[in-house]
Nucleic acid binder design. Structure first.
Length: 574
RNA sequence: GCCCCGUUAGCUCAAUUGGUCAGAGCAUCUGACUCUUAAUCAGAGGGUUCUAGGUUCGAGUCCUAGACGGGGCACCA
């Protein structure tokens, strides 16, 4: 199957090196036998031959030839390393062992085995103890040390690492032949007695060795691991195996997300799922990704926010709803922005932005506990205390405190902004005020701090404060100068909402599909949406904070990357 | 989209002011070793110095353009 697909590849100029392809091995491939093991790129050149020792295979000379269809050349370190591994794969097949393994029941987590092993501790210098309980583990070979007829493996599973000793006499001749085919990165199952080595290392003394999966690729440097940030992102699976703390960080992410769900469901919120494909993208000021539905011959966009559909559900009487999902914004990339990111939005009927502040604190504090993050921490150079109630400060009060201007006097705001080099010509005073705030106040907000009561002109979806039409009931939560959450007392006046939409649309280019009026949303409001508080929290940033990451790419398993053209990222024919 | 920095073997890194500098460790192969642990010891193979031009007697090194990545700015969450 693999060969036929490869043979259908169009011919390409020989020697370009651009068309190298990885053979699509899969677990559905036939189990290799002595005469029918999977062909390697090099082996395809010759009829299947009985598996041989590497020395014999190296002497036939055929492995140095190129492939007639792809122009692939077999040369270089990468090819030599792969050949060595494929030779061992063939030897395993010759021994009647499936190099791709099968079900292996009853393996204990290595961490649990280690816990049991502690009770048997034997200090270095004492005779080795090999009389502990029988254990069974499975994992990847991280390190391999051979001392003649003894081989030590460091085996890793998702819970931890442990040393395994394979002795020629102890495992018997058949398993010893298998042991001779092991490479770093292979996956094996081990049965043996738990004990301690002469040098004081907890060790499983293997009695049985089950080969489970061959690794054809060479793993990264066993000591340094993967350090190239590009490779760490492009080949996250390797980063997870070798990166310091990488796996723990994504485990923490999973626990944080689970905790957020739990906090909300505990408070009577219903988790719902809105549409990702939409006719027009609303609820935020961002450009959407465009796509197309074939059967309906209809242009669609990916959602940029969750808001408008969740509010429809408030109209529908669900009262407390949240969605924890992916949104997509066609914006630039940065250490704090990925085009797709995970957003929590929660809406509570009969609440307001103050209820959302309480909810926000609960969500973050519970998530920190779930992730095992201490309440007091240093992140991005800011001292942060999540333990005590978050500070709440008025937008105008903060602006006055930092800049010395009078926020209630537009002339004072504009003059202060101009003095700080901001462009003020012909702009709405509240817009100038917003820019002054962003340039002068945000970076200093170590937080966590709720900035409350925003200028109404920059909050088109927000209810005004009673008796103060120029002030919107909105807060933003800042931590380390970065926006973490955004919440409102939601606007439920359909006539005012429609008017604000129209005002918003008037200032935007006609081809911005984000700027389309959502008539059905207005109609929903006309049926009556209860007064409500609404909250949005950027989950990726929350994970950054709670796992001490400085880049959003460190908390997203597969961040968006440009296609790799650099040959360095396509090693060994990939 | 703009600015700065980076790219050398599969991985991690060296290479004086442009001058035999294309090297080391890991990994791989061969040999030794039944308590090693980044195992060690002896030997071997392995390179389009990201790509394409240019300057020069001579370019990994200098210049131009491009690709990719990182950081910053802008936009946003």
């Amino acid at each position: 199957m693999a060969d036929r697909r490869d043979a259908q590849m169009p011919c390409s100029p020989a020697g370009t090196g651009k068309t190298r392809r990885r053979l699509p091995f899969s677990k559905t491939a036939p189990i290799p036998t002595i005469t029918g093991f999977p062909p390697s790129r090099s082996a395809r050149m010759t009829p299947p031959t009985p598996p041989s020792r590497p020395t014999d295979a190296a002497d036939d000379g055929t492995h140095e030839q190129g492939h007639p269809l792809t122009g692939t050349e077999e040369k270089g370190v990468a090819a030599a390393l792969e050949k060595s591994r494929r030779d061992k794969l063939a030897r395993l097949a010759a021994l009647g062992k499936d190099p791709w393994g099968s079900r292996f029941d009853g393996a204990q987590p290595i961490a649990a085995v280690r816990t049991a092993g502690e009770a048997l501790r034997r200090p270095a210098g004492e005779p080795p103890a090999e009389d502990g309980p029988t254990v069974r583990v499975a994992g990847r070979i991280m390190l391999q040390r051979s001392a003649g007829s003894l081989v030590f493996l460091d085996l890793a599973d998702r819970s931890g690492r442990i040393q395994v000793m394979l002795g020629k006499k102890q495992v018997g001749p058949e398993a010893w032949q298998v042991a001779d085919c092991l490479d770093l990165g292979d996956i094996v199952g081990i049965d043996g007695r738990l004990g301690w080595s002469k040098t004081g290392e907890m060790t499983i003394f293997a009695a049985g060795l089950e080969f489970l999966t061959k690794s054809i690729e060479t793993p990264p440097d066993k000591f340094h691991g993967l350090v190239d940030p590009e490779l760490k992102q492009r080949q996250r699976y390797l980063d997870l195996i070798h990166g310091e703390g990488v796996r723990d960080r994504f485990i923490a992410r999973s626990r944080i997300v689970a905790s957020v769900r739990q906090t909300l469901t505990d408070r009577g919120y219903l988790e719902v799922e809105g549409p990702t494909l939409q006719e027009s993208a609303g609820g935020a000021a961002a450009r959407p990704f465009k796509t197309h539905h074939n059967a309906l011959d209809m242009p669609l966009v990916l959602r940029i926010a969750l808001e408008l559909h969740l509010k429809r559900l408030l109209v529908g009487g669900l009262e407390r709803v949240f969605e924890l999902g992916r949104v997509y914004r066609n914006e630039g990339l940065s250490p704090r922005h990925n085009p797709e990111f995970t957003l929590l939005e929660a809406y509570e009927a009969y609440g307001d932005y103050r209820s959302m502040m309480d909810l926000t604190e609960a969500v973050i504090r519970n998530a920190a506990a779930a992730a095992g993050t201490p309440a007091r921490l240093t992140w991005m150079g800011h001292e942060i205390d999540l333990g005590k109630p978050f500070r709440r400060v008025g937008y105008d009060d903060l602006l006055r405190e930092v800049t010395g201007c009078d926020p209630t006097d537009p002339a004072s705001v504009v003059a202060t902004a101009a003095a700080r080099g901001l462009d003020t010509a012909g702009r709405h005073p509240d817009v100038v005020k917003s820019e002054l705030f962003e340039s002068s106040c945000e970076a200093g907000l170590s937080g966590p701090v709720f900035v409350i009561d925003y200028p109404a002109a920059i909050c088109p979806l927000t209810k005004r404060k009673a008796g103060q039409p120029q002030v919107a009931e909105r807060f933003e939560l800042y931590v380390a100068g970065m926006e973490f959450a955004n919440a409102y007392t939601e606007l439920n006046d359909p006539d005012l909402q429609e008017e604000l939409f129209r005002t918003q649309l008037a200032g935007l280019p006609a081809d911005e599909s984000m700027a389309r009026m959502d008539h059905d949303f207005i109609r929903a409001l006309r049926h009556g949406m209860p007064p409500a508080g609404g909250l949005g929290i950027g989950i990726d940033r929350l994970v950054m904070l709670l796992t001490q990451a400085s880049s959003i790419r460190d908390v997203i398993l597969f961040p968006l990357l440009r296609p790799a053209e650099d040959p360095r990222t396509r090693p060994a024919g990939g």
